[in-house]
C-alpha cells in the first residue's frame, strides 16, 4: 500500500527525545518556507529516541533539501525519505457525524462497512467514527461522510514505516551527566 499521490513524500526522522527538538524542526520548516502537510512525533521503543513522520508537498519543495536540512539539526540522529521504496503509512481520524434520524444512522453504518472504519461511540444525536488507514482512504471516507453531516473531526497525521528489512533505528544513548564522577569511561577518562 504505497501512497499513490506523487506530490506527497514521506520523510522519517529519528530525533533525540529532548525538550525543544520539535521546536527546532518546526522552526526549520518555517524559515525555509517548506510546505509540510503533516508532522507527527512520538516515542519509540528506545527511551531516548523519538520518531517523526513528516509528509511534504514536493510540488513546492525538493525533498532532498528537506532531508539535508533536517540532518543539519544536531538533535536529529537520522533521516530518511521513504518515498520510492515500499512502506506502510497510516493516518488515524476520529469523525463526529450527525445521527439524529434513521437515514443518517443507516448511512453512517453503511459507509463504515465499506472502509476499515468503525463506530466507536453512538448516541441519539451524534456518532464517532474511527478510521485507521492510508491517508487517501481516510480522505475518501471523509468525503462520503460529509453530506451526512460532519460536526467535528480530528486526525493524527500520517505515520509511516519502511517494509521488510528496511530498518531505521539507532543505538543512541545520551551521556549520563550525573555519573561524571562515577562512570568516567563514558568520558574516556
Amino acid at each position: 500500500m504505497n501512497n499513490n499521490n506523487p506530490s506527497k513524500q514521506v520523510v522519517v526522522a529519528l530525533v533525540e527525545n529532548k525538550p525543544g527538538v520539535l521546536n527546532r524542526v518546526a522552526s526549520l520548516f518555517r524559515r525555509r518556507n517548506y510546505n509540510v502537510d503533516s508532522l507527527t512525533v512520538g516515542r519509540t521503543h528506545k527511551r531516548h529516541v523519538s520518531r517523526m513522520t513528516i509528509v511534504v508537498d514536493v510540488a513546492r519543495t525538493d525533498v532532498r533539501q528537506i532531508v539535508a536540512n533536517l540532518y543539519k539539526l544536531v538533535n536529529v540522529i537520522d533521516v530518511k525519505a521513504l518515498t520510492g521504496e515500499p512502506h506502510v503509512s497510516r493516518d488515524l481520524a476520529l469523525i463526529k457525524v450527525r445521527t439524529d434520524d434513521v437515514e443518517s444512522r443507516n448511512a453512517v453504518t453503511e459507509v463504515c462497512d465499506r472502509y476499515p472504519a468503525r463506530i466507536v461511540d453512538i448516541g441519539t444525536k451524534y456518532a464517532i467514527v474511527e478510521i485507521t488507514a492510508q491517508e487517501d482512504l481516510v480522505e475518501h471516507l471523509i468525503d462520503e461522510l460529509r453530506p451526512i453531516g460532519i460536526v467535528e473531526l480530528v486526525r493524527t497525521g500520517v505515520v509511516a514505516m519502511g517494509r521488510g528489512v528496511r530498518i531505521l533505528d539507532t543505538d543512541y544513548e545520551p551521556v549520563n551527566h550525573h555519573q561524571t564522577t562515577g562512570d568516567l569511561e563514558r568520558y574516556g577518562v
Binding site: 539539526l73 540522529i77 539507532t170 561524571t180 574516556g188 577518562v189
Partner: peptide, 16 residues
C-alpha cells in the same frame, strides 16, 4: 556547586 571533572573524552553526537 558540584564536584567538577572535566569531560576529557571524545564528543559523542550521533546526529552530527
Amino acid at each position: 556547586k558540584i564536584e567538577f571533572v572535566y569531560p576529557e573524552g571524545e564528543i559523542r553526537l550521533p546526529g552530527y
